[in-house]
Amino acid sequence: MIFKYVLIGLLGVFCVYVLALPRTALLRKGLVLSVVALMLIFVIKPEWSTTIAGAVGITRGTDLLFYLSNLVLFFIAFMYYLKFKEIEARFAKLVRQLALDTAARESPPERHTA
């Protein structure tokens, strides 16, 4: 099982990387690390996933992991969508303000008449 060691190595490196990240909220760090720890457990003891899967009505452990990883990925994609939309809104605000300021500079002061 060479791949097992490759996975363990990669996850280990990832763990070190997360731990070394500066200024990341402790809760977030803990969350990421616990997910990595869970992954490590399933890499080392794959049969455990089957046991858990059986307990929730899924036959194969790999299926359980497949569903879970899909859910997690979907969640992450959604969070990034929200983040993107928020940045887009801020960006629009910035560009709008620039446009309005330039327009105000180029036109004379308020002389609106009915």
Binding site: A92, V95, R96, A99, T102, A103, S107
Partner: peptide
């Protein structure tokens, strides 16, 4: 006309 210009397409 008054032209208000967005520097990039929004």
């Amino acid at each position: 006309v008054a032209v208000i210009t967005h520097l990039v397409n929004l």
